[in-house]
Amino acid sequence: MSGLLALLDDVAGIAKVAAASVDDIGAAAAKAGTKTAGVLIDDAAVTPKYLQGFEPARELPIIWRIARGSIINKLIFLLPAAMLMSAFAPWLIPPLLILGGSYLCFEGAEKIVHVLRPHDAQSGGPDGSHDVQDPTHLEEEKIKGAIKTDFILSAEIMTIALSVIESPNVWMQGATLALVGLMVTAAVYGAVAVIVKMDDVGLWMTKVGRTGITRSLGRGIVKFMPWLLKTLTVVGTAAMLWVGGSIIVHSIAQMGWHRPEDTIHALAVSLGGGSGFLEWAVTAAVDFVLGLMWGLLLVPVGVKIVGPVWNAVTPKGI
């Protein structure tokens, strides 16, 4: 009997440790997830464009296929690569973060340049995507393009998360990173699903609403959604530049050059007047300006050099 009680006591102890580990994983995942907020906002703002031109009935199936591709990107390809890098080449994390931050700055700056210098959005792209007539083929191409864009953003999300996860062993680190991947995928594509279907909900309310208030609310939703999408685009662009600049400054400090980060911190403290929010706002504003400046420098490089080289070496359809 005493042996059974001892065994039960050991099992209870193991359960307590497991429960604590689960709590630690959840807390670490939540902390890592907040660090990727800027990338998530941009991801949610970018994805709806891949659904333009399709029947409403195809929107949710397309979102599901993109989300499934995102999960495969994160868990099958990026998670093992991140774990190997963390175990055998942790020194690669800051340079990769700088590369990812530079990509965010480039994307944000390029969007601003396109607004200031409008381009012909109806002309065919280098992949001839605008010339595709078959709806099924167009859907496949859009999904492939969305998953390819997601891979880049997911790589940035996983690298950022990996850089802030503090875990005692590789298994907890891997579990936390996997949880982050699932959480952010659910958050992004759940939000996208709500966004793209809200206008349908509004139209439904205007048709079947039994009261004037319900029908008016439906019309308000329909009118509001285009403004929401525009706002998300603006917020996503600003977040890309702010997060990109912040990542670069912090990663440079991790590599040994602390002056930029220390200078920004000193400026934030002097202008913040002891207010934590003002200090954060000053820091974010400086990071945004730095991100924009760096991005504007990268735009001609990306458009004139990297883009043509990538199109030349990448087979169509990939």
Results as ranks from 00 to 15, higher is better:
G53L: 09
L153E: 12
G295H: 06
I112P: 02
G209F: 02
I14G: 06
R58W: 07
R58Q: 12
S123T: 10
V301I: 15
E139K: 06
P118M: 04
V184H: 13
P61A: 00
D43K: 14
E139P: 06
A284G: 05
A284S: 14
T214Q: 13
G13E: 13
K144N: 11
L203N: 04
A239I: 12
L79S: 02
K49E: 11
M293Y: 03
A109M: 02
A20S: 11
V282C: 13
W204Q: 04
Y103M: 01
A193E: 08
R259L: 12
T47K: 10
A15P: 05
R259S: 10
A89T: 09
D23E: 03
V201Y: 11
V282F: 10
A161P: 15
I264R: 04
R259F: 09
A178T: 06
G295Y: 00
M255T: 07
A285C: 14
Q133P: 09
Q173C: 07
A44F: 11
P90C: 09
A284F: 02
A155K: 06
K16Y: 01
M183E: 04
T176M: 02
A6C: 03
P126Y: 09
D42E: 15
I71M: 08
R58A: 14
L79E: 02
H250I: 04
N169Y: 05
A285I: 09
M293D: 03
L153N: 15
S86L: 09
G108A: 01
V115G: 03
H114P: 01
H137D: 08
R210I: 03
L51G: 11
L298H: 00
G13K: 09
Q133A: 15
T233H: 09
A268Y: 01
E141K: 12
S246I: 02
E107H: 05
L7Y: 10
V286P: 04
W204N: 08
A238R: 05
S21G: 13
H114S: 14
G100P: 10
A30M: 10
T314K: 11
A178Y: 05
V208G: 01
S216V: 07
V180K: 08
L40C: 10
A155T: 12
F106R: 00
D131C: 07
L79R: 02
